[in-house]
């Protein structure tokens, strides 16, 4: 509360604020994805890190695409995202360093119980999408360049279909976060691709079900990256490295494994 009031009067004290944001400040900003935030993972694990190190973690949840963009601008110390190719490009371009695997789960295709495209029980994700396209059954896409969206486009390519021609017809681009997209899909009786964690933690499932799962192409790995402190000298590299090594170390990995919703584990540790 006290710090907040400092910030409120901070309008008149812009300079003192800038002094307070030197790299050794007691907090780090993590640019992350809506799927990890909405699943409740951070609320479960961050207090443990804080308790151990005293470092406060401020999570900004946006799509992976936006998180990478904000990271390029230097608006954050650590990224926790899920789009491997884009992550590697981010590192290759010199914006981030020390990328490591953290955890994984998987994507699933969910849909209405009457399943007009008849894809229930399938284990081939591109084939299921082809079925949806063939039936011209409504499908809601994130449409926001997020990790999930990038994965979805890869699956359409694997199916040999370009759904963009049907945009506005059965293919509907929500341009929103995972939760909003799920609300949309449930609201219009449509299929969509979601990460399993968000789906399990989601409160507005109605009678929608997971219809397709278990395809290895639905693998959803999360990586953690430190924003390059050489490029952005204000980055709290000490705090960021502490967070990354905790998250990929035994304590963090155990905390991730221990997080469940309705007795279902949402993320699986993957640090080597």
């Amino acid at each position: 509360m006290f710090r907040r009031w400092l910030h409120l009067v901070g309008l008149g004290l812009l300079v003192s604020c800038s002094a307070a944001t030197a790299a050794d400040r007691g907090f780090i900003i993590v640019q992350s994805t809506t799927s990890t935030q909405n699943s409740g993972l951070f609320d479960a694990i961050l207090p443990k890190f804080r308790e151990k190190t005293g470092i406060e973690v401020r999570v900004v949840a946006v799509g992976t695409g936006q998180a990478l963009k904000n990271g390029r601008n230097g608006d954050g110390d650590v990224l926790l995202v899920h789009a491997r190719a884009a992550e590697d490009r981010f590192v290759a371009d010199g914006f981030g360093i020390e990328r490591q695997d953290v955890m994984y789960n998987d994507f699933v295709i969910i849909g209405p119980p009457d399943d007009p495209a008849g894809i229930t029980g399938g284990r081939d994700a591109p084939a299921a999408l082809a079925g949806i396209a063939g039936a011209e059954a409504p499908f809601v896409s994130r449409g926001d360049n997020s990790g999930t969206h990038i994965k979805e486009r890869a699956l359409w390519r694997a199916a040999g279909i370009d759904p963009s021609g049907s945009s506005g017809a059965w293919y509907r681009e929500a341009g929103s976060g995972m939760g909003a997209t799920l609300n949309t899909a449930v609201g219009m009786g449509a299929y969509t691709l979601t990460d399993r964690a968000t789906w399990i933690g989601f409160g507005n499932r109605r009678d929608f079900k997971v219809l397709v799962e278990g395809d290895k192409r639905l693998f959803n790995p999360y990586g953690v990256i430190l924003v390059n402190p050489t490029r952005h000298p204000h980055v709290n590299a000490v705090g960021g490295r502490a967070f990354i090594s905790w998250l990929t170390g035994s304590e963090g990995q155990a905390a991730i494994a221990a997080y469940t919703v309705s007795d279902i584990q949402l993320f699986y540790p993957s640090s080597k």
């Binding site: 409120l8 812009l14 604020c17 608006d75």
Partner: peptide, 21 residues
Amino acid sequence: LSRAGPLGVLGLLYTPTAMII
């Protein structure tokens, strides 16, 4: 207010001050 922006050095992004502005 972004670090890449003209007022980035103030470090005001993601603070209540930014919301007030």
